[in-house]
Nucleic acid binder design. Sequence first.
DNA 1: ATCATATTGTTCCGTTTTTCACAATAACAT
DNA 2: ATGTTATTGTGAAAAACGGAACAATATGAT
Lengths: 208, 208
Amino acid sequence: MITNKNCIIRLSRYKNALYRLQALGFVKVFSDNLADAVGVTASQVRKDFSIFGISGNKKGGYQIDLLLEKLNSILGKDQLQKVIVIGAGHIGSALMRYRGFEKEGIKIIAGFDIDPAKINRSNVIPVLPLDEAKGFIKAQGIKIAILAVPDIAAQEVSEEISAAGIKGILNFAPLRLKDIEGCVINNVNLEIELENLIYFVNVAQKLK
Amino acid sequence: MITNKNCIIRLSRYKNALYRLQALGFVKVFSDNLADAVGVTASQVRKDFSIFGISGNKKGGYQIDLLLEKLNSILGKDQLQKVIVIGAGHIGSALMRYRGFEKEGIKIIAGFDIDPAKINRSNVIPVLPLDEAKGFIKAQGIKIAILAVPDIAAQEVSEEISAAGIKGILNFAPLRLKDIEGCVINNVNLEIELENLIYFVNVAQKLK
DNA sequence: ATCATATTGTTCCGTTTTTCACAATAACAT
DNA sequence: ATGTTATTGTGAAAAACGGAACAATATGAT
Ligand SMILES: NC(=O)c1ccc[n+]([C@@H]2O[C@H](COP(=O)([O-])OP(=O)(O)OC[C@H]3O[C@@H](n4cnc5c(N)ncnc54)[C@H](O)[C@@H]3O)[C@@H](O)[C@H]2O)c1
Ligand SMILES: NC(=O)c1ccc[n+]([C@@H]2O[C@H](COP(=O)([O-])OP(=O)(O)OC[C@H]3O[C@@H](n4cnc5c(N)ncnc54)[C@H](O)[C@@H]3O)[C@@H](O)[C@H]2O)c1
């Protein structure tokens, strides 16, 4: 069982690069083309594929459509993924308005908020009261939630929604949620991303 | 020279945990306290500190204020970091409205957009026309930019701003910008983050 | 002053991840 | 048919990383 996050991220990048190549009219691809497109070594590409039992053709490379099928299957893209957003504030509503997830087979189908002023049932993507979240998650079988509530609320809300059936949380609040049994938590911590960038910029400056 | 991104991210987390501990009244901390707070091993904490020549006191742990000074210095937090946002759309304006960066010493001082309708010079954080970006970057000595433009524009804009003096870009467009000499590029790819989360949720389900 | 104890700092070791290298082989050329 | 070539697939080597262990030592107790 593969637990290497970077490896899975590479698979996503391969997939994206393959769609671009396909759009350019390519039908097959070699490991080094793909490597260039994604910014890794050709060995890495072949090794990643090997891990998942993906094989190409000696001297013929990989047939893009077949490769995409396999990658999409590994990445769980065979079926539309329904996602909800908790917290329809600045970041939550930016995400809800974003169309880019749909071409990836990811659909935000509702938002939830504790503030009555944010509720809007008639919107394409409705914003519902938080206390309806539990029922909604169960009724619709939602597995994935994007958490965009203030940091003080994040821990409590994450426990509530996972109790209701959420199995994966993408957390934007800048704190470490404590582990929840049966729920995967990935964090998007933009403060830390910026801090990290600043560090590497400073290091690069000092090198010169 | 440290090139381990995870290590630097841990430093940020240590720093954040230390501020919380300090707020709770603690004056000193042991490697295992900090380890618990951040979710790593105590060895890892000491190793990270050792790499940067940070030392504590045998039997006395680390004095929080001194430790924070050193971490802040490593992370370049001695001085306010001025940042600009390119693309004042959904995500760009969510970021510009966010107050959370300031407590981290990161200040978004302007946004830039190509769309005249987005321009707003009188705002606290003004949104200016893109063609003023170059002059602004030079005049203010800006090093860091957040790139929140549509993917088709991202490559061109990134080259422009780095030519104007930007040394680090936090890119939200879901594509790989080609390497730019003298400019560090970090990506926040939310499509991939979600895809990744979905993969690990699926894997966890299959395990059971 | 001596001893016991707690905690660091660092070395060593195991694991994970990446890269290297090349044998296997399918496709193509002659 | 045979040979040549390009590219895969993988096993082995190297590098990076993280964790365990423990010697060094400062602190506090007696
Ligand atoms: N906006 C950004 O650019 C940005 C950047 C980095 C991190 N973040 C983080 O993302 C999170 C959201 O930020 P934001 O700027 O969108 O904040 P915001 O205040 O605009 O939105 C938060 C929303 O959550 C709602 N909310 C509060 N408690 C809730 C609860 N218990 N259940 C459901 N909804 C609840 C609020 O009513 C509000 O609509 C915060 O944790 C913030 O630190 C935001
Ligand atoms: N909104 C989201 O939740 C979200 C999520 C994931 C990724 N993204 C990515 O972030 C980027 C921005 O997304 P968004 O939703 O904010 O889009 P948006 O269309 O709301 O905003 C983009 C802004 O960039 C401006 N712009 C266009 N070309 C420009 C140029 N050359 N120079 C300066 N400004 C320019 C536009 O006028 C617009 O204001 C996109 O690449 C998108 O794929 C957004």
